[in-house]
Amino acid sequence: MKLVVKTPWVEVKLPQLSGRILDVGGGGEGVIGRTARGEIYILDISEKELEEAKSRGAKGEFIKGDARKMEFPDEYFDTVTSFFSLMYMRDSRKVLKECYRVLRKGGKMLIWDAVIPRCLIYNINVIARSENEVIKAKYAVVFPAPQTCEQIENLAKSVGFEVVRKERHEHWFYLELSKV
């Protein structure tokens, strides 16, 4: 097992998002809150991370809360996003189940996240490109659980999501999921 894993910079293309959007774990860099248009809700368990996202220019309603038990009504959002956030959450299945619940039928969940090997510290550096902005973001996890695209894909399917599109890269992955 490696002690520290540092990836090279990876480049991620962001779609233009609009409508009612929930960004799960959207504090910190606030990438989705800085690039999406519409009614944006930024959920994070950490007040400090929400404040950081605000200071970086994220726009929307900032909500301190646990993604495993959200206080939103069923089928409330058009889109749910998770931008390099699942790697910080210990019960991804519960998070995905809640995301499925709050997403409207026909809605999409978009997940960008890291492929994490066994290690003590994991670092990934991301260049996020949207239509109007380029954001450089650095993420680090101490004592991370190993994570793969297949693992998150299987969890998503187990709660009812259908996989519309997937991209697997050496250090990261993207899943576009649909609630049918």
Rank of each mutant, 00 (worst) to 15 (best):
V102I: 11
T7N: 09
P8Q: 14
D23A: 03
M70K: 10
K59Q: 13
V4L: 13
I152L: 12
N123Q: 13
P73H: 02
A140V: 13
F72S: 03
E49F: 13
L86I: 09
K48Q: 14
W112K: 13
E75W: 01
P144C: 10
G33A: 01
G160Q: 08
N132E: 15
R165T: 04
M89S: 05
A67T: 11
D23R: 03
Y76R: 08
T7H: 10
Q16I: 13
G27I: 03
T81Q: 00
E39I: 02
F77Q: 01
I32D: 01
R101K: 13
L22H: 08
S82M: 15
D113F: 09
V115K: 11
S130P: 01
A53Q: 01
K136W: 13
L96P: 05
K59N: 12
A137L: 10
V141P: 02
I152A: 06
L110W: 12
E98A: 00
Q147T: 09
I40E: 01
G25T: 11
R34D: 00
E29S: 15
I45A: 12
K54M: 08
G106F: 08
L3K: 13
R56I: 07
S92A: 15
E176H: 02
A128L: 04
K69Q: 14
D113P: 07
A137G: 13
Y122D: 07
E133K: 15
G106E: 06
V80S: 06
A156T: 04
T81N: 01
R104G: 08
S178P: 03
P8C: 10
Q16F: 14
D23I: 00
I111Q: 04
Y41V: 07
H169A: 12
G26P: 01
A67V: 10
V141C: 09
P146H: 06
V102S: 07
